[in-house]
């Protein structure tokens, strides 16, 4: 099956993309296309206009100058997970990105595309949330920045407006933090049933600071703030486990074939314990 017919514009600059987006009430941005093309092929969606942003070089770079690592929205997963600065300063993002789909999809798919698509099952949004990433969005009236806490609005819904384009995501540097992304799925190709993004700063064998994001336990990624607070001072598996019990506080998971509400909440707790332990190097 191939997509229903659409008009097509290939943008080579952000301004061209914005102009194109403004020209239609029913435009879709094509980044790497790894989420969009299967949807179009199955004709689950049939936009009037496709604005191809995969040739906009200005949004593909990764810049580690200053106190942030700023990743262009068009940087591929493969570029992100292999970037030395990302690996050194935002290791959790590299770890989560390695679990995204498969090599071919990581060669085409982009970080920005995945974040803007905001699939609740996607592995990178909770990383961005937990690490307080900052999103730069370009629109008709210029650029604006949105903190991660305000970026994810609902399933497949973000702060990016219809006439806007996500251009970059800046991550504060977490040099020296321990991190782990715990992906739990049924087969290698399957989406996360639950995923846990955990980063901890250790001080004298104790957790001094923790950042925890949860994948696929609700319509948006979830920040497990109660766990983060409870983890401060933890130095043993028992203490981590006790803190991780709060991973299901306040979450409202949905039920599907892979997990009902009870099991998802259970997984959130167990996997948070495991992810934090691995991030902290505590057994």
């Amino acid at each position: 099956m191939i997509p229903a017919a659409f008009d097509y514009t290939r943008a080579t600059t952000v301004d061209e993309a914005l102009t194109a987006l403004a020209s239609s009430d029913d435009a879709k941005i094509l980044g790497g296309g790894q989420s969009l093309l299967p949807v179009l092929r199955q004709r689950l969606n049939a936009p009037e206009l496709i604005v191809d942003c995969s040739a906009i070089d200005e949004i593909k770079g990764i810049d580690a100058g200053g106190d942030k690592v700023t990743i262009g929205a068009g940087a591929t997963h493969h570029a992100v997970m292999n970037d030395p600065a990302v690996k050194a300063s935002v290791e959790l993002l590299a770890q989560a990105t390695e679990t995204v789909a498969d090599p071919q999809i990581r060669h085409r798919g982009t970080l920005g595309g995945s974040l803007a698509h905001a699939d609740p099952r996607a592995d990178q949004p909770p990383v961005a949330l937990a690490l307080d990433a900052e999103f730069t969005i370009a629109g008709p009236s210029g650029k604006r920045t949105v903190p991660a806490s305000e970026f994810f609005i609902g399933p497949f819904e973000t702060a990016v407006g219809e006439d806007e384009l996500l251009v970059s995501v800046a991550f504060p540097k977490y040099d020296g933090w321990g991190s782990h992304y715990e992906k739990f799925n049924r087969t290698a190709q399957a989406w996360s049933i639950v995923g846990i993004a955990a980063a901890v700063r250790m001080d004298g064998g104790k957790i001094a600071e923790a950042r925890i994001g949860l994948t696929n336990v609700g319509g948006t990624p979830v920040r497990a703030t109660a766990v983060e607070q409870a983890l401060v001072g933890a130095s043993s598996m028992a203490e981590i486990a006790a803190a991780a019990e709060r991973a299901s506080d306040g979450i409202e998971p949905f039920a599907d074939e892979d997990a009902d509400v009870e099991f998802r909440k259970h997984l959130a707790r167990v996997l948070t314990k495991r992810a934090v332990a691995k991030a902290a190097g505590i057994e």
């Binding site: 094509l30 296309g33 299967p38 092929r41 191809d52 071919q104 060669h107 085409r108």
Partner: peptide, 25 residues
């Protein structure tokens, strides 16, 4: 659904699923 990978080719030297790339791209 871009699962099977039977259509994998190299594009600019890297493996991609040619069912998930538009020819114009």
């Amino acid at each position: 659904t871009s699962n099977c990978g039977a259509c994998t080719i190299l594009m600019n030297g890297r493996s991609v699923k040619s069912c998930s790339v538009l020819a114009v791209q």
